[in-house]
Design a protein around this nucleic acid. Structure first.
Length: 156
DNA sequence: GCCAACGTTGGC
DNA sequence: GCCAACGTTGGC
């Protein structure tokens, strides 16, 4: 299957690109997704080796901080079954757990943050979902050419 | 099944 | 901290 490209949002004061790099094996479980559209992207779209724009949200300046890759395809998210977890879903059962997670692995941190403001001005990125007002989806598909443009921006 | 109320996200 | 956007919930 052809490699695909994604953007995943995270609040860097909760989990940043540096946190990912410092994890054992530079890997982490992407748990806690509780939105069906975002889940569907993970469950139905993501394969091992897909590339991810690692996006820092909420804490200014917001933007793409680096690149990660899918290290494990979707599998059940156990935090949905854990009453002590803030991601607990009382409707989930071991037999019927609607929530999944993937594993992501650190690839690189950009030498500089590619800010949302910048993404909005760059030719070729006009249709990127992340620049659209009110776009809250935390996991978004990215076109290969958009991914390449962001990489070049980061190195420029 | 409609839709108002409510809660959350996330840029600013 | 504000609030626009939008997803979810629940009454009917």
């Amino acid at each position: 299957m052809a490699k695909k490209y994604w953007l995943m949002k995270t609040e860097p004061d909760v989990f940043s690109i540096k946190d990912l790099r410092s994890r054992p094996g530079k890997k982490e479980h992407w748990d806690g997704v509780r939105n069906y559209q975002a889940r569907n992207h993970m469950r139905d779209g993501m394969s091992i080796g897909d590339r991810i724009l690692f996006y820092h949200s909420s804490v200014p300046p917001v933007g793409v901080a680096g690149v990660a890759e899918v290290a494990a395809a979707a599998y059940p998210d156990p935090t949905a079954l854990d009453p002590k977890s803030k991601y607990f879903d009382p409707k989930a059962t071991p037999d019927k757990n609607p929530w999944v997670m993937v594993d992501v692995r650190f690839v690189k941190e950009f030498p500089r943050l590619v800010t949302l403001d910048e993404l909005k001005t760059v030719p070729g990125l006009e249709s990127m979902l992340v620049i659209k007002r009110g776009m809250r989806l935390s996991i978004q598909p990215v076109k290969p050419e958009e991914f390449e443009i962001v990489l070049k921006l980061a190195e420029a």
